[in-house]
Design a protein around this nucleic acid. Sequence first.
DNA 1: TAGATTGTTAATCGATTAACAATC
DNA 2: TAGATTGTTAATCGATTAACAATC
Lengths: 212, 212
Amino acid sequence: MPKTISVQALQRLPTYLNYLKSLPLDKDAKISARALGNALGYGEIQVRKDLSAVSDGGKPKVGYCTAELIRDIEIFLGYDDVNDAVLVGAGKLGKALMSYEGFKTYGLNIVAAFDSDLAKCGTDESGKQVFPIDKMENLCKRLKVRIGIITVPASSAQQVCDILVEGGVEAIWNFAPTHLSVPEEVVLKNENMAASLAILSKHLSEKDWNCP
Amino acid sequence: MPKTISVQALQRLPTYLNYLKSLPLDKDAKISARALGNALGYGEIQVRKDLSAVSDGGKPKVGYCTAELIRDIEIFLGYDDVNDAVLVGAGKLGKALMSYEGFKTYGLNIVAAFDSDLAKCGTDESGKQVFPIDKMENLCKRLKVRIGIITVPASSAQQVCDILVEGGVEAIWNFAPTHLSVPEEVVLKNENMAASLAILSKHLSEKDWNCP
DNA sequence: TAGATTGTTAATCGATTAACAATC
DNA sequence: TAGATTGTTAATCGATTAACAATC
């Protein structure tokens, strides 16, 4: 039976992975839950609990084998098989994401981009093709693209989202600052920068209250 | 006494605000918790609880006054007074954020950017100045900059972060895919794209298990 | 063996949801 | 008044942490 994992724990896994990969490569290196937690600002109990969901476990008095841990997390997250994605909206943010090499490590492969502005179509600096948006549904179906990344303005995001769903996309990563409706079989993840900013902004305004 | 609000509720506030602002402007417009929730995919009880922390409240049988709600949320989040920010790392992502007009609505004002690459210094397309990074600490102090946005590679993020803290920055918004250590009086918010991707990737790989 | 470390079960904490009273 | 809607207290749910047993 597959162990259950909380959403939050799942989201911490890439952080562990990232840190483990940054360590000097040594086939037999071991790391304790405490050391791992200290490096990342997590408690050691939390680390053990998180890792228990993905790995066979460490050895008492020794710790976890870093190489195994890296492999286990990658397999658990599905980073071992590559997922093709399309990106919609070749503006500044879209281009930044298109040319970000780091996505490879997460098994994310942006195969093409789309934009409604024909002036933006053609080959991008990143070396990726930007197509007119009316080619999107068809291309998604033909290439069996599983992930759609939305970097268009809020006003056209829902429309773009609907086309992606129509094209058979199974997961949507939304950078537009707006709520999207998707059928329940499609997973939607909002990259909600406004939500992040809310935390910073509130914190600063509270400080002002305390020391005016 | 100020009402308490959960972190999650705080992060939902910009979503409410954004939706309310998208509605046709009408000084006396009212909206019910149910209508608001339906539009955003939240339950109506949650909406009422969230709003109770920021607003004087609605009227039974009538709902909330949208104009008041907008004002209350903006004040609560501190969007009414502007916070100056600097951005470090004028790469593609950095430039995308520098030229994003939408931050104004959140009271965020990027006053300058910094980069260690002198070739990137000068005036950016966004119209903002990019300075060499050794000017950063001083300029932050001089202008009393409160927010630092980090868009450098992971390898230099901690170093950049330390300089920002040294420069008196009170809040850090980190886009580098790495863990940062900050003193406890400084608030740190990670824009953790890898965490978002983990959710999508796991979902897709689970689907593969079920229908191979 | 003793001590360090893992792994799990139980307790706590925080957020969401349900039930219901209040009010226009 | 009756019905719709708000607001709050209590119950549930989920995630984190504490306590402790297991093991190398």
